[in-house]
Design a protein around this nucleic acid. Structure first.
Lengths: 208, 208, 208, 208
DNA sequence: GATGAATGAGAGTTCATTCAT
DNA sequence: TATGAATGAACTCTCATTCAT
């Protein structure tokens, strides 16, 4: 009986997490389509197929939804960076892999939201108040990029006269989602082409 | 009397335009501080020192304020590009001048707003509905950059194997306001340094 | 087996009533602390240590909780009046005993809730709809007080020219919980003092 | 022109104050009928004949409406006390006048609201947060009553062995609106009778 | 019987926009 | 022309109540 109840518990818990993930996914979509302010909790709930109040059982407010999305995505990026670190040998190939993951891979849609959140002025205030951990996550991402760049410098791959912080920052803003979208819309390129070319510019730009 | 009335007219008209410019300037400031949605028409009006209704005599809605700001800034950029075209000789130095104008010069604050507007999802819808002319302006900017890049290619300065559209898009997203701000906040750099280094990466990246 | 099941039944029933009493007691506390509207069913349930739904197995709604509390307290008052009737000899000493019971005794906290419920406008509607029996109980209390006053009149203790109904009503509103609390907070008096003095004013006021 | 504009101003201001008073009056009515929590801002607004938003131009929130009502009524009571002080000679007749004003006069309906507000547990918290000035006003009322009672004591009218604070508190809770209503509903008395009789009990109770 | 996740009506509040003055 | 009081749609969030497990 104890075992059965435990199974039951974990089933409930699993369903709960699945739903929570579903809410996040839907919220992400709607935020991307309509923007944060033009998205109502009603819209999110009805798209998920649940009642408005149910969303509040998972997230205490609209703010927290964005923050949760941001956090989840950052974690995913960090995870992916670990994967890249293992699969690739040189710092450059690791960074290239990251670039593809974020802009050409399955993550590209999320990158858009991340970027639009990260750039809008109103979200900044929100993060200042509630998203203390996000800063940490973001810094961790930036740090890993910086580490890779430093490694590359030491190996003599990258130009040691360029400040690492500026290289990092340039890397992280290499592709703005909008320009990217525009290029895709033109129809001359597939995602991988764009990322490859952009990466080429960057790595030639920083090479020793 | 006809002359007097005409003078009167033109005086009124001048005052009107001055006020319109003032509203735009103030709106720009507040949008940057608070973000679009967290800025109320009341706040803008009271900062300008006029009544809320008066703002509506100049701009039909809050949306149109953003669009007008965007448009004004784009015109300014286009004007500045013409200046650069005249003052500088090589395509690269022209593009460098543009980079400095937008990120290190007086225009850098506006660039921030432009960028945050351009990236946020809710503004996209707005532009789709109302800002048909903005697309044209933006395309004109992109075209001039592309022209300069093509010129550079023809002169043998830039790598002809890189697609111009990708070079253009990379150029236009070189500096995201947030990374830029972050770098400045660190205190290791002055604006000019950042832009110079970033430009260096870009131009080495695209050189023949 | 019939006997065993009966025992089982009555045990269950006893537990049920104990829990019902516990719910009432907790609800009373919370209503006093937070007020009716600022108290959620969740709070009550979690303070009792049961699930929200379980409260609804005992009381059909939040309203009914208040009514049940009111009813229970009225019954308690009626019971106490019977006790007073037996223990004391003169009508005055009986009324004095009642006064102490309600304001200085263990019942004083309940008197507060009773009073705040009785006076608030929203509870009136509730009573009008659901609490038909409460009127009866309240009237019975008032009647007994009136009886004691009439007895006193007949004995020549109380002024026969004062209408009994007005004496009754004055007696019942002698101490409002707030004034009472205020006096206690001042620190000059203990509950018994306050009640004694107030009683003195009343009984001198009505004496023949 | 200055004069005309001034007149215009004062007209506007007068209209504004009239409307504000109307809102207060209507809110008072509705709060009395439905209670604070069961009254919606919509209901108040629509009864006044204005839009919901307009109410917020006069009062920053629902809370503030109650507080404003309370404050207004307290001021009115204080004003009336001054009138009584002038018109009547003895402390007792002054207190009697006050009693009639609050329970038998035009103010009796307001006394009900005042009382129901004053006694409900949720309003207490509200006052603790926002209504700091109300405490002051209430204390001033209590003080004046206490003064009159002290005067009476000095003149040898009232019993000097009774603590003034208890006499004050008894005076202020002499008539609870509910008992009062009940007595009226019975149909045996007119308001003046009730107040007269109740006063009689009180003053005989405290006489020297 | 007991649970607590799900519901959804309804609350207070904001603010872009209008229009009588 | 300039004003700012008035509007009311739309928002986020709460919580009494229900019901499948």
């Amino acid at each position: 009986m104890s075992s059965s109840s435990q199974v039951h518990r974990s089933l409930k818990e699993k369903q709960r997490q699945e739903r929570e993930a579903l809410i996040l996914k839907v919220a992400e979509d709607v935020f991307l389509e309509r923007g944060y302010h033009d998205t109502s909790m009603d819209e999110i709930a009805s798209r998920v197929g649940i009642a408005k109040g149910t969303v509040y059982l998972h997230f205490p407010g609209k703010d927290d939804l964005v923050i949760a999305i941001f956090e989840r995505d950052m974690q995913e990026i960090l995870r992916q960076m670990d994967v890249s670190l293992d699969c690739q040998s040189s710092p450059q190939s690791k960074l290239e892999a990251l670039l593809h993951f974020m802009y050409a891979g399955l993550f590209s849609k999320r990158t858009q939201l991340l970027s639009s959140i990260y750039h809008s002025a109103d979200m900044q205030r929100l993060f200042a108040e509630k998203g203390s951990c996000l800063r940490v996550l973001w810094d961790r991402v930036a740090q890993r990029v910086a580490q890779l760049l430093d490694e590359g410098k030491e190996r003599g791959d990258f130009d040691p006269t360029l400040p690492t912080s500026i290289m990092t920052s340039t890397f992280l803003s290499l592709l703005s989602p909008k320009s990217y979208e525009r290029l895709l819309a033109d129809g001359h390129f597939v995602p991988d082409d764009i990322v490859t070319h952009t990466g080429k510019i960057f790595f030639r730009g920083i090479q020793a």
